[in-house]
Amino acid sequence: MAKDMRDVYAQTLVDLAENDDRICVLEADLMNATGTKVFKQRFPERMFDVGVAEANMVGVASGLSAEGKIPFAASFGTFASRRTFDQFFLSANYAQLNVKLVGTDPGITAQFNGGTHMPFEDIGMMRLVPNLVIIEPSDLVSCEALIRAAAAHQGSMYIRMHRKGSNTIYDENEQFELGKGKVLVDGTDVTLIAAGFVMVPEALKAAEILKKEGISAAVIDMHTIKPLDNELVLAYAKKTGAIVTCENHQVTGGLGGAVAELLTAEYPALLGRIGAQDMFGQVGTQDYLIKAYEMTAEDIAQKAMATISKK
């Protein structure tokens, strides 16, 4: 059976913990959803399930961090961000501690849990926290590499993590560096900058569609949304003159917002943004929702062509 991304998350933490007694795991009654039961089985003394109390989870994680531990605390992205924002902001970040907060089920992947559970705003909120590093892995290989990078990074992080399902974009030996985007496809007419499990594959498909139209599209996996890889974005803005951001999130505040802010300040270039357009989530299958929010490869290709046409 194919592994889910959550299994990679949990197993990577177990592997890290084998050699590092600072690694701890916290859950707020979602251990079975996040898949960290394997961690509890291996390291019961370093696993704390605080019950349905996300604010306390982040506070306890901060206390553990103050004592030198490296806590990974997870919940659904809605609750990891909205419910714990003040705790994460103050007890973890303002205090300059080292808490890795994991928000699962990003955007439309919340599916049938609907609007209450569909985080379209978590990255936007988290981008406002000074010095916070924000990552969103796009496949299982990058998930493992980035979780390892997160453990090694001194400072709090928000990790936006897909939970169920598996895909492969990278070879297993691919190296990743926080803050350095990955150029997956090179191109000259437009650059598709995508993040996450849903949107990076869609952007790759969109590049294929565009190729058939005679358009050369570059694709970048922006696995680190903050700090944004400014150098790479600006290089491709200059190279292609048109950018389309692709995110499973509101187009404001997140990846699209970050790219827009950078371009406006440094190198104004044509920009199209794919993602939720100031809308709440809703119930649906992922296939239904990706169409409802106009985030499919076809939508990206159309947005790319519309953006290029303004050149």
Partner: peptide, 9 residues
């Protein structure tokens, strides 16, 4: 909450 984390450690 932070005190709980410290005491746990």
């Amino acid at each position: 909450s932070a005190a709980v984390g410290m005491a746990l450690e």
